[in-house]
Amino acid sequence: MTDNVSAEQLRQFIERVERLEEEKRGLQDDIKDTYGEAKSTGFDVKTMRSIVRLRRMEKHHRDEADALLETYRTALGLQ
């Protein structure tokens, strides 16, 4: 009987993951469409993606990344 309960629980987990994967695909399509719309109105999508990535970071991580980038730019004479 335990095998039946475990099998049923496993099936439920698998089905839940499948539903979430489908939702994720839908959201990814929505994000792609949004970037496409922004591009068609003149925004630079590459820069927008960078901004989204930066906004997800905590401030101290963002500050560390900025300081490191500045150090590397200085070392390479990219001022």
Rank of each mutant, 00 (worst) to 15 (best):
I31P: 01
E15C: 09
T41W: 02
L54P: 00
Y72N: 11
F13W: 12
Y72T: 06
L20S: 10
M57E: 10
F43I: 07
R55N: 06
S50T: 13
E58V: 07
R56S: 07
R56P: 00
A65M: 09
K39G: 03
T47Q: 07
G26Y: 02
D63Q: 03
L68H: 03
L54I: 14
Q9N: 14
M48Q: 03
K24A: 10
V52Y: 13
S6L: 07
E21Y: 05
L27Q: 05
E8K: 11
L76F: 03
H61M: 02
T47I: 08
V45P: 02
L78G: 09
R19K: 13
L27S: 07
A67P: 00
M48I: 10
R19E: 04
I51N: 05
E22C: 03
D44C: 02
G26S: 10
G26L: 07
A38F: 10
K32A: 01
S40T: 08
G42C: 07
M1H: 14
D33C: 14
T41K: 01
Y72P: 01
M57Q: 11
I14E: 11
E70N: 04
E18C: 06
M57G: 06
R55D: 11
E22A: 09
T41R: 00
G42S: 05
T71W: 04
E22P: 01
T41H: 00
Y35F: 08
G77A: 13
E22V: 05
A65R: 07
S40W: 04
T2C: 05
I51T: 06
S40L: 12
K32M: 14
R19Y: 02
T41N: 02
E58I: 00
E18H: 10
E37Y: 02
T74S: 10
S50A: 15
M1V: 04
A67N: 04
V17M: 14
I14A: 13
Q12E: 10
V45E: 15
S40D: 08
D63Y: 07
K46A: 08
F43D: 09
R53Y: 01
V17K: 10
E8V: 11
M48P: 00
R11Y: 08
T34W: 03
D30W: 06
D30H: 01
V52A: 14
K32Q: 13
K39S: 05
R62P: 02
M57L: 12
L10T: 13
A75V: 07
D63K: 09
R53G: 14
E22Q: 13
Q79T: 10
H61G: 15
Q12K: 13
E22S: 04
A65Y: 08
R56V: 05
L10R: 14
R11T: 11
T2R: 09
R56Q: 11
H60L: 06
E70I: 03
G42V: 01
Q79M: 05
D3Y: 07
V45K: 02
A67Q: 03
